[in-house]
Simulated scan of single mutants.
Amino acid sequence: MSRLLAAFLTCVAATVLAAGAAFGIVTALEATPEQQNVPLVTFPDPPAQGPSTASGSGAG
C-alpha cells in the first residue's frame, strides 16, 4: 500500500510541477515586450517611369 501511495504522490507532484512550469513559461513570455518589426534590408523605391513605347512590342 505504501508503494502505491508513493507512486500516486509522485505522479501528483510531477503533474503539479509540469503545470507550474508551463504557467511560468507562459507568464514569462507574456511579460517580455514585443519586438519591433523592423526590416534588416530596405530597397529604394524605383523611379517613376512614363509610358513606354517598347512595352507593346515584346517577345511574341
Rank of each mutant, 00 (worst) to 15 (best):
L17A: 15
P33L: 05
L17R: 02
G56R: 13
A18S: 10
M1E: 04
A54G: 06
G20P: 01
A6H: 06
A31I: 01
F8D: 02
E34W: 07
G60S: 12
V38G: 00
L29D: 10
S2I: 05
A18C: 07
V26D: 10
V26N: 08
L4R: 11
L17V: 13
A21V: 13
F43N: 00
S52H: 04
F23D: 06
G50S: 12
Q49C: 02
R3Q: 03
V41M: 02
G50C: 00
V16W: 12
P47M: 01
A48D: 11
V12L: 15
A22M: 10
L9G: 06
T32K: 14
A54M: 11
A21Y: 13
S55I: 14
T10F: 10
G24R: 04
T32W: 05
T27L: 11
P46R: 11
G24T: 11
P47F: 01
V16C: 09
A31F: 07
A6R: 12
A28G: 07
L5M: 07
F23N: 09
G56Y: 09
S57Q: 08
G24A: 15
A19N: 03
Q49T: 14
D45K: 04
A14V: 14
S57D: 14
V38Q: 11
T15S: 14
G50W: 01
V12Y: 05
S52K: 13
A13D: 00
